[in-house]
């Protein structure tokens, strides 16, 4: 298939005794947003560093647009835009100086590829003479993205671009990624925020260096084959404890103001649970069967 942009086959990497990633394989299609979703230390950065030619895998092959990451690393470096986990900007250079610097490094100019970064850059332009170190988190993130895009890469690799960034900036950032996708850029992005999975075309859930699952967000949710209940009562603290000690409880996790609950019994009815909670003197009991989200699925895979 010509449609495949990134092809990762059985890569493995260890640091001393620690196995960072164990036998990972996946492919990313052209102009797809592919998300690596998992907590810190699960191996996301290692995978991205191998793809961006910064690290060598102990085993396995990685191929980007037909080029091998080891043999053709110089070619690959011209085609990818990379935003490492930490905001890799020069704090003591201004916005425009950072941008110009990265443009010259890639042998281009800001004007040449202005179209691509225009939407993003316009938002930070009012601050173009401010030092990067003095920008807010969201602004830094936009500048870093502009810098990664300045040479018009075909593949964009973003390592936790939204970590530590507030909810508003995160939203805006994902909107920008959707627009870039339309411009035919393949995007690989990692994040510890489960709710961002639904914004990707396909995701891989990763934990301890292994993929728990890899599919479209919808398909992953489809695989959740249990009934999931959302429960709320007037005394949430007691509700937690009661459900923890309930003999039929399979899982019970807090989600915002609710608890998400699964039952060990196959075809349990709402009334059963209600009865139990009433017996524990809970009032104002609200129980609803709900559609799971990616976080439910992630925890489900984790406990399997």
């Amino acid at each position: 298939m010509n449609n495949i942009t990134v092809k990762v086959e059985n890569i493995y990497k260890s640091y001393g005794d620690v196995e960072a990633i164990k036998d990972i394989s996946f492919t990313v299609n052209n102009s797809e947003i592919f998300g690596l979703i998992g907590p810190d230390g699960s191996g996301k950065s290692t995978i991205f560093r191998i793809i961006t030619t910064l690290l060598l895998a102990d085993k396995g092959n990685v191929n980007l647009l037909g080029f091998d990451v080891i043999k053709d690393y110089k070619k690959i470096r011209n085609m990818i835009g990379y935003m490492p986990g930490r905001f890799s900007l020069y704090q003591d250079l201004s916005v425009i100086e950072n941008l110009n610097f990265f443009a010259t490094v890639f042998g281009t100019t800001v004007d040449e590829n202005y179209d691509l970064i225009k939407d993003i850059y316009l938002q930070i332009e009012p601050f173009k003479n401010r030092l990067a170190g003095k920008l807010s988190g969201g602004m830094k993130q936009k500048l870093a993205l502009s810098c990664a895009l300045i040479h018009k890469p075909e593949i964009l690799v973003l390592d936790e671009p939204t970590t530590g960034v507030d909810a508003v900036s995160r939203k805006e950032f994902w909107e920008m990624l959707r627009k870039l996708k339309e411009k035919n850029i393949t995007i690989l992005v990692s994040t510890p925020y489960m709710d961002e999975a639904s914004l990707c075309d396909r995701v891989a859930l990763i934990q301890n260096g292994e993929f728990l699952n890899i599919d479209t967000p919808d398909n992953i949710i489809q695989q959740f084959n249990k009934k999931l209940w959302s429960i709320k009562t007037d005394n949430m603290y007691e509700l937690r404890n009661d459900l923890k000690n309930y003999e039929y409880t399979e899982t019970s996790f807090a989600f915002g103001q609710m608890l998400h609950y699964t039952d060990k019994r196959k075809n349990v009815e709402k009334t059963e649970i209600e009865k139990f909670l009433s017996s524990k003197e809970h009032s104002n009991i609200k129980i609803n069967m709900i559609k799971p989200n990616i976080e439910d699925c992630f925890m489900d895979f984790m406990t399997k």
Binding site: L54, N78, Y82, P84, R86, S88, Y90, G107
Partner: peptide, 13 residues
């Protein structure tokens, strides 16, 4: 330390 080295290495420099 800043992480900018990663970007420089990934660049064609």
């Amino acid at each position: 330390e800043l992480g900018t080295m990663e970007v420089l290495l990934v660049s064609p420099l």
